[in-house]
Design a protein around this nucleic acid. Structure first.
Lengths: 202, 202
DNA sequence: CACACACTATACTCGTAAGTAAACTATTTC
DNA sequence: GAAATAGTTTACTTACGAGTATAGTGTGTG
């Protein structure tokens, strides 16, 4: 039945798939070498195409990065939404969120969010990134404050607490390599246990 | 008594002071804008001198960075040595080390150590940096293992624990700005309390 | 069949920033 | 006071890599 002629839908899909492939290849290289050290020529070469083809799908190098970051941010926000819909104490929901947060940090696009500082971006890009990162931070803080209110979390400065937790869970974005001994899930669980239970023997 | 003619010692000292000043100015700019985005021309301008003067004191841009990193690394290693000489349980010594570690991360040179990834460096530079960072990680782990042995720290994977603690305390290198509301010391204390005591109300 | 349009490549432009050559000044040494 | 030395500048070279002009190829559309 398959005709050699493709329908408009098929063509649109194919185009989108190619675009995605460019982003995947780019984000891997950004994570490995850093944004500045990554040549769009190399990204193209890794896909067996040439640089102008990338420009056919994306406006410029910064936009490539911005799209990657956007995909990662979506995952973080999805994690927050999911935790928000959970039942349980503030601490329960926080723990759930933290585990998901940690795992996103070990995904190609998620880690790109953490590794992308404002230095690499234009002022406008940096601005929009900062705003969207704030939303994630705000979500984290809302779980913390909820837990302090319902008594499941000890009172302390919520801002410092949020930075401490985020910092610990962001770090795998810098050292974790896919296919290591431990799965991302296992690492996430252990880290969250350490953070919520402390170091004292129990 | 002061003669307008300087002794060889004075001149050597002056030269060293100028070198230091270059490193200070450079590290500040590296931390603010990132290594790649920092122009040696701008570093020079911030000191009221010109780029070739920097080259008179330092070999090239990478060496400027490497010297800054070396100064930061010394501080981390000094923190480890000091904690090693302390008495008390493994947990006591770990807490002491963590507080010092956190504070170094809010110092100009210390934060440069954390912010400098291998991407920015030549293969040789990256190699030597990795090795020296390992020594700090090893020190952290030795305190952890000591604490697990003497029963002051709950048993878990020391590697994951070390990464979790380091990650949390490294994070201020990315967000802390000198002269904020809280002092570096206050932040360090609060973070270490959170990490060692956990989130449960007490 | 002709024309438009999507996609891709080759071969270029051009700005930028690291690093250098050459010269100039002041100070110390013989 | 001549010669060496340290410190500094202005003005240059050069490499690299982002982005583009142009053209070619194939696939649907009047």
């Amino acid at each position: 039945m398959a005709s050699p002629f493709s329908t408009p839908e098929q063509r649109a899909e194919e185009r989108s798939a190619k675009r995605q492939a460019v982003l995947r290849a780019a984000v891997r290289m950004f994570n490995e070498r850093g944004f500045n050290a990554t040549l769009l020529d190399d990204v193209a070469a890794s896909l067996g195409i040439s640089k102008p083809t990338i420009y056919h799908y994306l406006g410029n190098k910064e936009q490539v990065l911005l799209e990657c970051v956007a995909l990662g941010l979506e995952q973080f926000l999805a994690a927050a939404d999911q935790a928000r819909r959970m039942s349980g104490s503030g601490l329960d929901r926080l723990r759930h969120f933290l585990r998901a947060y940690a795992q996103v940090n070990m995904d190609d696009f998620g880690r790109c969010v953490i590794r992308t500082g404002p230095e690499a971006l234009s002022p406008e890009g940096a601005q929009s990134l900062r705003e969207r990162k704030r939303r994630i931070d705000a979500a984290m803080r809302s779980f913390i404050e909820e837990g302090m209110a319902d008594g499941s979390i000890a009172r302390s400065d919520p801002k410092i607490l949020a930075f401490t937790l985020a910092g610990a869970l962001n770090w795998p974005a810098r050292w974790h390599v896919a296919g290591g001994e431990l799965s991302a899930q296992a690492i996430a669980h252990q880290m969250v246990d350490i953070l919520t239970l402390g170091l004292a023997p129990r």
